[in-house]
Computed example of a mutant assay.
Amino acid sequence: MDPLEAVAIGAAGIASGAVNAVVGSGTLITFPTLLAFGYPPVLANVSNNIGQFPGNLSGTYGYRRELKGQLPRLLRFGAASLTGGVIGALLLLQLPADTFQSVVPVLILTACVLVLLQPRLSRWAKERQAREDGGGPLWAGVLLTGMYGGYFGAAQGVLLMALFGIFVRDNMQRLNAMKNVLASIVNGVAAVVFIAVSDVDWAVAGLIAAGSTVGGLLGSKVGRNLPPTVLRWVIVVVGTTASIIMIVR
Results as ranks from 00 to 15, higher is better:
217 L>R: 10
178 M>N: 08
52 Q>Y: 08
169 R>Y: 05
147 M>D: 07
219 G>C: 07
145 T>Y: 04
238 V>Y: 01
242 A>I: 06
48 N>P: 00
90 L>I: 10
30 T>K: 04
52 Q>F: 07
125 A>W: 01
173 Q>V: 12
217 L>S: 10
81 S>Q: 03
56 N>Q: 09
234 V>I: 10
234 V>M: 14
19 V>R: 04
198 S>K: 03
123 R>S: 12
184 S>I: 05
127 E>G: 11
51 G>F: 02
225 N>M: 15
180 N>Y: 01
233 W>D: 05
156 Q>N: 13
220 S>P: 05
73 R>P: 02
195 I>G: 05
236 V>H: 02
150 G>C: 06
27 T>I: 07
106 V>L: 14
110 T>M: 15
112 C>S: 12
3 P>F: 11
200 V>C: 06
84 G>S: 09
129 Q>R: 14
239 G>W: 06
11 A>N: 06
209 A>S: 05
38 G>Y: 02
84 G>M: 06
90 L>F: 10
128 R>M: 09
44 A>E: 03
44 A>K: 04
187 N>S: 13
115 V>L: 11
120 R>S: 14
138 L>F: 03
30 T>A: 09
130 A>W: 01
104 V>C: 10
58 S>C: 05
173 Q>H: 15
139 W>Q: 12
45 N>W: 01
12 A>T: 03
79 A>V: 07
98 D>L: 08
141 G>R: 04
185 I>A: 08
4 L>E: 15
163 L>T: 01
203 A>R: 10
170 D>S: 15
116 L>I: 13
52 Q>R: 11
241 T>E: 12
165 G>Q: 05
69 G>D: 07
166 I>F: 02
126 K>P: 11
172 M>K: 14
123 R>Y: 03
101 Q>A: 14
9 I>D: 02
83 T>Q: 09
149 G>R: 02
64 R>N: 05
142 V>P: 00
229 T>V: 15
159 L>F: 09
90 L>C: 10
29 I>T: 07
194 F>C: 02
16 S>F: 01
117 L>Q: 14
33 T>W: 05
134 G>C: 08
211 G>P: 00
74 L>Q: 06
131 R>K: 11
242 A>Q: 07
195 I>A: 14
37 F>E: 02
188 G>Y: 01
221 K>A: 15
209 A>E: 02
89 A>F: 00
33 T>M: 14
183 A>P: 00
143 L>M: 09
218 L>G: 15
15 A>K: 05
95 L>M: 12
175 L>V: 03
112 C>T: 13
135 G>Q: 10
228 P>I: 09
182 L>V: 08
29 I>Y: 02
141 G>P: 00
101 Q>R: 14
160 L>P: 01
93 L>I: 05
173 Q>F: 03
118 Q>D: 15
